[in-house]
Amino acid sequence: MKVLVTAKRVVDYNVSIRVLADNSGVDLNNVKMSVNPFDEIGIEEAVRLKEAGIATEVVVASVGTSACQEQIRTALALGADRGILVETDEDMQPLAIAKVLKAVIDKEAPQIIITGKQAIDGDNGQTGQMLAALAGLPQATFASKVEVEGDSATVTREIDGGLETITVKLPAIITTDLRLNEPRYASLPNIMKAKKKPIDVMTPADLGVDVAPRVKTLKVTPPAARQAGIKVESVEELVDKLKNEAKVIS
């Protein structure tokens, strides 16, 4: 069975982002870019499915500028077999990305599609669910455990207050939560091997998809700064301040 995973190019999670002075967005110049951490978990899950003999091929897709080749190479080094880059300079919003991915799965016909539950740049958390709706497929979001058996997958999901287990018919979309797995590091030989793996490049127009943005960003501002308070010297002083100054405990 074929598994399709996504690899969004985002600012590395360790980077402290800076809002541009003209409030037009976030400064992305000379900032370290990485695979969205939740996509990385998806790639790991797909590679494990292959190692377990369930998946026969892992295809990784990315949508964005030509620089996304880097993130595809990372996924290939982690064990994906080949890549698809849908290249565009457009500001790609979740609905447009979902439409592009829908066109990709129409061509590739994977049985399982794994995306991150959210990307850590826009924090939208929409793409997987939108893709599922557009393709008329079931979804299992925020997965912390995936078991594939025959033509269905049983997925444990992280929900408010605990866990939920559902079964979805394949093909299905799965979105990853933090505890699904711990992604491996790519070994040097695998990084070298990844350079030889094929990447197909196409455009949204080739796929016949309209990717015009639907949402205009009017401005981006830094959040209201929080003033640092005081240091207390002892637990007694702390309790006294909380009782008598902040009045948050009695």
Binding site: L95, Q129, A132, R214
Partner: peptide
């Protein structure tokens, strides 16, 4: 933005062919 809202609302947006504004 509960885990339920996060789960089904993007489907609603996609079925209506509109964007979602999250959270």
């Amino acid at each position: 933005t509960s885990t339920s809202g996060k789960n089904f609302m993007p489907r609603v947006a996609a079925l209506l062919d509109v964007a979602q504004i999250s959270d």
